[in-house]
């Protein structure tokens, strides 16, 4: 019963994507438009390039930069955000600057980092980590500020104060809000990863795709776009899974409420 019902749910969820891909496949089969090659041809080229011939050259460095930059952003965003969340006086002075910096479109900061660092990997990592820090920092600050006063009182009476209170009470209580910042940060990190490769020549999946476009290697460009799309989607899926595990307590609590 439940098995067949679940199967039905999957079928209802899946028919449209399958249909769309099928339509693309058949509609493009006879295509002579150079910009829209047949999907079957794109697919063959995709397998040649990305399973897994070019992966070590282009995909691995991209993901590496993304991972390192994002990790720095998480540490900096949560760390600074937590301090600002606790100390309102500092926050009053720092917030306007943060507000300004995060209002600059993330991708537009890449040229700034190119001016400072040149075109190498350190530029990419710096751009990724700075851009991704803001949403994490702001979410952490707001979350830490909004801790339920009853929890804080309870902690204080049990002599859980200062750094311990921040680490053991305020930050865990703020997890749901922090995670929304982490998600936004990850999406921005992904975008800046690609932007930094578009703008700084060389390796990486973004650079590969843009160079292919400029050289009218249209098939290669298509495979790059599809690969980036799939990567972007996959990264979100992974994040959702991690979030669901980390916030099990919160999700369970909300379901019962």
């Amino acid at each position: 019963m439940t098995v067949s019902r679940r199967l039905l749910a999957v079928l209802i969820g899946a028919w449209l994507p399958v249909l769309l891909v099928y339509l693309w496949w058949t509609a493009s089969a006879e295509s002579t438009n150079p910009y829209f090659p047949p999907l079957s041809v794109i697919w063959t080229r995709f397998l040649e390039l990305w399973v897994f011939d070019q992966v070590p050259v282009h995909v691995v460095p991209s993901l590496q930069n993304l991972a390192v930059g994002y990790a720095i952003a998480v540490v900096a965003g949560v760390g600074v955000g937590a301090v600002l969340g606790v100390s309102r006086r500092t926050a009053r002075y720092v917030e306007p600057v943060v507000d300004f910096l995060r209002s600059i479109p993330a991708v537009a900061t890449v040229p700034v980092f190119i001016v400072i660092f040149g075109l190498d990997a350190s530029m990419r990592i710096a751009a990724i980590s700075v851009a991704a820090t803001w949403p994490i920092l702001i979410a952490t600050m707001q979350g830490v500020r909004a801790t339920d006063p009853t929890l804080l009182d309870t902690a204080a009476v049990f002599r859980i104060t200062g750094a311990q209170q921040l680490w053991r009470v305020r930050l865990p209580a703020a997890q749901p809000i922090i995670f929304s910042g982490l998600q936004l940060g990850l999406q921005i990190a992904f975008v800046v990863t690609i932007a930094s490769e578009y703008l700084g020549a060389g390796f990486g999946i973004g650079a590969f795709t843009l160079i292919a476009t400029d050289s009218f290697l249209i098939l290669d460009a298509w495979t790059g776009v599809i690969l980036m799309g799939l990567l972007g989607y996959a990264i979100n899926i992974v994040f959702d899974i991690v979030e669901r595990i980390a916030l099990r307590w919160y999700i369970g609590q909300k379901k019962l409420a």
Binding site: V169, Q175, W249
Partner: peptide, 8 residues
């Protein structure tokens, strides 16, 4: 409901 830490 608010004095026990819900994440623990």
């Amino acid at each position: 409901t608010r004095s026990l830490m819900p994440w623990l």
